[in-house]
Amino acid sequence: MRNEKDNRGIIVRDEHELQVVSPHQSREEEEREIEHRRGRGGRFNGIEETFCTARLKHNINDPERADFFNPRAGRLTSVNSLNLPILRSVQLSVERGVLYPNALMSPHWNMNAHSIIYITRGNGRIQIVGDNGQTIFDGEVREGQVVTAPQSFAVVKKAGSQGFEWVSFKTNDNAQVSQLAGRVSTIRGLPVEVVANSFQISREDARRLKNNREEVSVFSPSQSGRSDEIA
């Protein structure tokens, strides 16, 4: 991992102790976990894990299991049949998202699944657009509401001032997402000429569109998008 002004080669020798930034539960999340355990009597007898040979539980809320983490924006965790094989039997996968206040999840589209989004905490704004450019949903959402994003429709989520958390249930045991912005986006991989011709914009605007964000999946409120913000 390098910052923007690091001109060293591809292979770099670490001269000091290597440290990795990882997400941890906030105080509020820890309190909710304690309350949950108290509600169950604080006892786990293991029957859930030993009743059959298939593993039936996976803690998607564990911050240390996040697939993407940005210390200024939030985290994203996915569970599918690769890390919980029993999901193959029900043809479902799950996504857990936590955005910090005013943070943004990268515009994206679900390649092979519909997505049912249940807001678990906070508030935010969700926009859903079809492949013909028609907006089918653009509104504020809050805890307890459900929004469905059809397959192949572009989706973007932005957190409100209190943060935004959700769980998405997807109709495929290995749901795939294609991002439309950020360091690993589809547009980032296209030649400048293709982007310019597709959107009928100048080459300079196309270059800015391709490179406007260095973050992955979850974007900080800052517009800088510097590579050293990624963890």
Results as ranks from 00 to 15, higher is better:
Arg38Ser: 04
Leu56Asn: 12
Phe169Gln: 01
Gly130Ile: 03
Asn110Ala: 04
Glu17Asp: 08
His24Ala: 10
Ala175Tyr: 02
Glu229Arg: 13
Glu140Pro: 00
Ile187Val: 15
Gly189Asp: 08
Asn3Asp: 14
Val98His: 05
Leu104Glu: 04
Arg226Lys: 12
Glu214Asp: 15
Glu48Met: 09
Ile117Leu: 14
Arg213Glu: 10
Arg55Gly: 12
Arg37Leu: 12
Ala159Val: 01
Met1Leu: 10
Glu193Leu: 08
His16Ser: 06
Asn80His: 13
Gly225Val: 05
Phe219Arg: 05
Asn197Pro: 00
Ile128Phe: 03
Ala159Cys: 05
Gln223Asp: 13
Gln19His: 12
Glu28Ile: 08
Leu82Lys: 15
Asn7Ala: 14
Arg43Lys: 13
Leu56Val: 02
Glu49Val: 00
Lys57Asn: 14
Cys52Leu: 03
Trp166Arg: 07
Gly42Ala: 08
Arg226Ser: 15
Glu29Gln: 15
Arg37Glu: 11
Asn45Ser: 08
Gly46Ser: 07
Asn110Phe: 02
Ile60Asn: 04
Ile11Val: 13
Ser178His: 06
Val167Asn: 02
Gly160Lys: 01
Arg183Cys: 00
Thr171Pro: 01
Thr53Cys: 05
Pro71Ile: 06
Leu104Arg: 02
Asn174Lys: 11
Glu35His: 08
Ala73Pro: 10
Asp62Leu: 06
Gln200Tyr: 00
Val129Leu: 05
Ile34Cys: 02
Leu180Val: 10
Thr50Ile: 14
Thr50Met: 10
Gln145Met: 13
Thr53Ser: 12
Gln134Ala: 13
Ala73Lys: 02
Ile86Arg: 00
Arg96Asp: 02
Lys5Leu: 15
Thr186Met: 12
Arg2Tyr: 04
Val129Met: 14
Ala196Gln: 05
Ile187Gln: 06
Ser93Asp: 05
Ser202His: 09
Glu64Ala: 12
Ser220Phe: 00
Val218Glu: 00
Leu104Val: 15
Ala231Tyr: 04
Gly122Gln: 01
Ala231Asp: 11
Pro63Asp: 08
Glu48Asp: 15
Gly163Ser: 06
Val98Gln: 03
Gln91His: 11
Gly130Trp: 04
Met1Ile: 05
Leu84Ser: 10
Ile128Leu: 12
Val147Pro: 00
Val218Ser: 02
Glu48Phe: 03
Thr186Glu: 12
Ser81Gly: 07
Asn132Gln: 10
Asn110Cys: 03
Gly124Gln: 06
Pro63Met: 07
Asn132Lys: 09
Ser178Asp: 04
Phe199Ile: 10
Arg37Trp: 14
Ser198Lys: 07
Gly9Asn: 12
Val146Met: 15
Phe51Lys: 11
Asn102Trp: 02
Arg43Asn: 07
Glu33Phe: 07
Phe219Glu: 09
Phe164Gln: 03
Gln134His: 09
Asn110Glu: 07
Ile119Ala: 01
Arg207Pro: 00
Arg188Asn: 08
Ala54His: 10
Ile201Cys: 04
Val90Ala: 13
Ile10Ala: 14
Glu49Trp: 06
Asp205Phe: 07
Arg213His: 03
Ser26Trp: 07
Arg40Thr: 07
Gln134Val: 10
Ser26Lys: 05
Ser202Ala: 11
Val155Ile: 14
Asp6Met: 01
Leu84His: 11
Phe51Gly: 11
Lys57Thr: 15
